[in-house]
Nucleic acid binder design. Structure first.
Lengths: 211, 211
DNA sequence: GTTTAATTTAAACAATTGTTTAACTTTGCG
DNA sequence: CGCAAAGTTAAACAATTGTTTAAATTAAAC
């Protein structure tokens, strides 16, 4: 991938994050990236295909690491859950702009291709987590839970935290737009919370027979 | 509020939900609502003020019911949590369009006024739930948990479910855009999952000393 | 060095955007 | 009725949108 093409993708990511897909003009991207307007059509074909390229570029990232974790036979199920929490929290916090585009901007785009692309990515992620949980159940560590909704709680919690930044800036008294201070303060808390939430949720010893 | 004004708000809600704020033109709203283009400026002043009016109209809704629940002295803390889950799930499923606008479209809007409005609404909600949890802690039912993150898990899970409809359509084999079948199938599952998740999370008896 | 392909440019394209204007009709009140 | 306020309309406004064109420049290959 040419360096210029990559630079356009990075600039587009920043702008889509700040102003949304519809709210960002192609001229805006071209000016910020210091390239001629026509270069974007030249490289990507259209604004929408630029977005698709961005998603494909970033989304492949987590798949490899997640796959390794799933197939690792040296870790017990609870450890895998803990690492899963670390993996997702770090990934989402480190690429928070892209994650924000995925969760809040992409769903607003009408294109069927984009919707299909997103669904595929989510399905692959869900499947990997499902394998970790069912493995834990087979080994007798985890009890019977609704796996899809458990995944929804993991992803939903992290997403809620990253997409409600202005709220948590206020709550935790962090100065505005200081993303680094935010991550440093929230990420460890979030990891602890999720690990503890999932431990009591999954542990067969805390089964109350409600389900 | 005049009937026509209300009708414009309902139409705008539908369109903002489908295509986002930037993706919806004022002409689009006017045509769909069968009113003249200029009527929207006449009634609301601008497109952005129309959005503000929509948020203020819908957001006040849950506050009253939530307040009642918090101050109800006949319910024990676990019952309050269960009712809270029912309340939010029903509210979000019944007004899923508005909720989707709140969570996925509003954050993309640059306006400081809109951002402030959203933060205020969320703070009020957070505060009510905080009161329920601290009450349960004082009475010795709940253990020490991170309240902000617990709220994030509740809201995040529900939001994740409502905003990933296409994914769950596929998983549960529901025909596309059959929102009613979706709600009927998912809402009870979601309530059970959240109640069970929160019970083991909050119950002082399942304290593992991790926090 | 010549030629072919890839890259880059400014300009123009038609379409759509949010908002305003000024003229018109309807409504409500004395 | 008479008249002022509220409601409604079509038309025009300037600005911006995504994309295309055709000419100019650079790079690569022979």
């Amino acid at each position: 991938m040419s360096e210029k093409r990559l630079h356009i993708l990075e600039v587009a990511e920043q702008l889509f994050y700040e102003k949304g897909f519809e709210g960002t003009s192609v001229r805006d991207i071209a000016n910020t990236a210091s390239v001629n307007l026509a270069m974007i059509s030249y490289y990507f074909g259209s604004k929408e295909k630029l977005l698709t390229a961005l998603v494909e570029w970033r989304a492949g990232y987590i798949q490899g690491v997640l796959n390794e974790l799933v197939t690792d036979e040296t870790l017990d199920p609870f450890e895998k859950i803990d690492r899963l929490v670390n993996l997702y929290t770090d990934k989402i916090f480190n690429h928070s702009r892209f994650h924000c585009i995925m969760t809040t901007h992409l769903p607003t785009i009408q294109s069927e291709k984009i919707k299909q692309l997103m669904t595929d990515i989510k399905l692959r992620n869900l499947d990997n987590i499902r394998r970790i949980i069912t493995e834990g159940q087979k080994k007798g560590f985890f009890r019977k839970v609704d796996i899809e909704l458990t995944v929804a709680s993991i992803m939903g919690t992290i997403t809620h935290i990253t997409s409600s930044k202005p709220l948590y800036y206020k709550i935790y008294g962090i100065e505005r737009n200081n993303a680094e201070a935010y991550n440093k303060k929230i990420a460890p808390k979030l990891k602890t919370h999720l690990k503890q939430l999932l431990r009591t949720h999954l542990d067969i010893k805390s089964d109350t027979g409600m389900l």
